[in-house]
Design a protein around this nucleic acid. Sequence first.
DNA 1: CATAATTTTTAGATATATCTAAAAATTATG
DNA 2: CATAATTTTTAGATATATCTAAAAATTATG
Lengths: 235, 235
Amino acid sequence: MFCLSYLVSCLKRNSMHSFTEENYLKAIYKLEEKTGGRVNNTDLAKALAIHSATVTDMLKKMSERKWILYEKSKGFKLTGKGRKSAVGIIRRHRLWEVFLVSKLEFGWDEVHEIAEQLEHVQSEDLINRLDSFLGYPKADPHGDPIPDENGEFMKSEAVLLSKLKAGSKARFAGITDHSTAFLSYLDKIGLALGDTIKIGSIEEFDQSYILQLKSKKEIIVSSRVTNGILVVINY
Amino acid sequence: MFCLSYLVSCLKRNSMHSFTEENYLKAIYKLEEKTGGRVNNTDLAKALAIHSATVTDMLKKMSERKWILYEKSKGFKLTGKGRKSAVGIIRRHRLWEVFLVSKLEFGWDEVHEIAEQLEHVQSEDLINRLDSFLGYPKADPHGDPIPDENGEFMKSEAVLLSKLKAGSKARFAGITDHSTAFLSYLDKIGLALGDTIKIGSIEEFDQSYILQLKSKKEIIVSSRVTNGILVVINY
DNA sequence: CATAATTTTTAGATATATCTAAAAATTATG
DNA sequence: CATAATTTTTAGATATATCTAAAAATTATG
Ligand SMILES: [Mn+2]
Ligand SMILES: [Mn+2]
Ligand SMILES: [Mn+2]
Ligand SMILES: [Mn+2]
């Protein structure tokens, strides 16, 4: 009994993380991505929907374990070790999302919460076999890149649809708004990842766009929509 | 914040269980199956590799929540509600094992630990879609029956191979020893679930069996093996 | 049935992850 | 730069799930 718990606690300390720890790592990674730099306590607390005091304690622990660099009042950032873990979690999340959509026929607006659970299953072998089973997908159902076994992934060249000029053509490559409401809305208006979009014209008044879909149908979308969509320009 | 935690705690109390609670439910179910009746504290503690004092506390909680009937010093058993939950967990475990073996090409001796994690993912929709994706399998890779959506499953008619007489023929339908060592051993000697086995003769001295495999190869197995194998007799 | 053995419970402690309220530290602003 | 606003930390509490040591209860045995 002593031996077992000792072993388990060792494993935990070195290579594994609790669900909670994994959620912190992932949240920090995403905040770093968004802000491009260091992250602060308040933002992380908001992202995790917990209180600052709780975050303070966990940051101390994560700092001791060398998952983050933490300079009091200067914000913090992931170490190499921390980043590697975070990328692994994102890899798992996105591969499971591909599985759910491509094999179990879930809608792209239905998979996130389930993937939030599946991403915590610990087995490298499992995830590499899943990757192979899915045909080594490069992106998840939302167009987000999937890190490979070594944690490498393509930096996207996509830009916001709202940056394009009238007359240009582009491929729908990703989203910045991952909300279920937005995804369902896109389903409703018939816009799917990979589609070619042509910009008919842009209304000066409110920056709404008239888009020509691959079905030749024309639709008007608000700037909220063009700011939620990432596209790759066809040269 | 107050609202959210209240909601979460309500959900927890009514329809969901923590990992720990799920592991207790499953362990109790399996012990009931094995002993055929009520379960006691000590046996459950052993099955979960925890201490009796811990079990006492948890049984109180499970009793309050009406998952078990608990009569002090008379042992306890699952209520209908508790049994339903336990069967649901077993359904998830076994479906994931099928997935791991039939889709990800894991060996039958490699899947249990991963399924122990996957079984805790909470989504009825997920598990029903997985069931459909796998073609509604009736048994897992170890021959154990998979409960359907309503928790119904076939009671097996299999008997121990060690009960058969020389000359009889039977189909390898399940195992009573689920250890990795046993599963790997069966792989090594070339005995797989579903195979037809013919009993050549039985050695009086130590009850070892000479088996004729479908490959016509003959092997000798000890009584430890014939007691680990379940077969269905071909009439 | 008295004693021994086994099983279960109680009492008090620990680890993790959270909270609230208040204090302290830092940053922004007139 | 003094004050206000914001951010972070401290202190103390709670819930869950575990432990150890000892007491209490139950069951088995001569
Ligand atoms: Mn997601
Ligand atoms: Mn995604
Ligand atoms: Mn199993
Ligand atoms: Mn199994």
